[in-house]
Design a binder for these strands. Sequence first.
DNA 1: CTATTATAATAGAATTATTCCAAGCTAAGA
DNA 2: TCTTAGCTTGGAATAATTCTATTATAATAG
Lengths: 141, 141
Amino acid sequence: MEKIINRYKGKGFKLTPQRLAILHYLEGNTDHPTAEDIYQEIRKKNPTVSFATVYNTVQALRDRGELLEITIDPERKHFDPNPQPHHHIMCTNCGKIDDIFIDYSSALKVPENISDEFQVLGNHVDFYGVCKGCRARKTNN
Amino acid sequence: MEKIINRYKGKGFKLTPQRLAILHYLEGNTDHPTAEDIYQEIRKKNPTVSFATVYNTVQALRDRGELLEITIDPERKHFDPNPQPHHHIMCTNCGKIDDIFIDYSSALKVPENISDEFQVLGNHVDFYGVCKGCRARKTNN
DNA sequence: CTATTATAATAGAATTATTCCAAGCTAAGA
DNA sequence: TCTTAGCTTGGAATAATTCTATTATAATAG
């Protein structure tokens, strides 16, 4: 908690109780929550918090590069409090998302027609698959 | 047009005028349109078509593997009538999306903790960058 | 420690994207 | 040509996200 406060103190990011609750929930969280997930969790301890505050806060964090917006799930946005570039895999059955910390950049060369047209600034790899739990469940049914 | 008809004829996919218009618009289209784009275009010739029909049709095509749903743009879904697995690059300034036809699969190995947990079935690489037009525009302003 | 002020939080409305539904319509096969 | 499963439609419903106007408050200066 101290760590969080020190990270934002005096950096033009006002630390309100709501924001602290959100930051605390996200700290080290690898569940890739949606805005809804964050809202439901924060509400338990801070019942008057509004959805707008959750959205405002994740936007502010995203704009500061403290948070990544994950597009792997076509249904909704997920958030990842680890801002280092990395990749994701989603279970197409249950939606579970895990992190993959490998830098594939050197292998991800684009063809010439693309590099002529675009200055490439980044990449993100989405993997799709079926997780162990879902495989087990499918075999049983 | 004949090609389209032959592709769906007698395959349990009823070819209505609305669907033909949508299929015709998508045929060979590399613009990665959104549902809105498709709707606006179809309406020009077929003014009574409804949004629900556009969504129903792209869903039916997606379920048949004739169409890919693209998640590269956090703002909205785009559709790609080329169902072969391939990758995309988006200009972070203007939103333009281009195709990249390289199979990176052999380079995209996942770490052991992931392959223990997931049966990996596919991958998709999103590249981000700035297109030539936007770079020119930025230099001038 | 207090006052000031810029910024954040709030409720609720608005917007946008997408899906659902019930009723009528029609393409395609018999 | 008839039949019917499957499609189309407008409009309502739902869901996700953003906006707005007002109130509250964290941070800084004094």
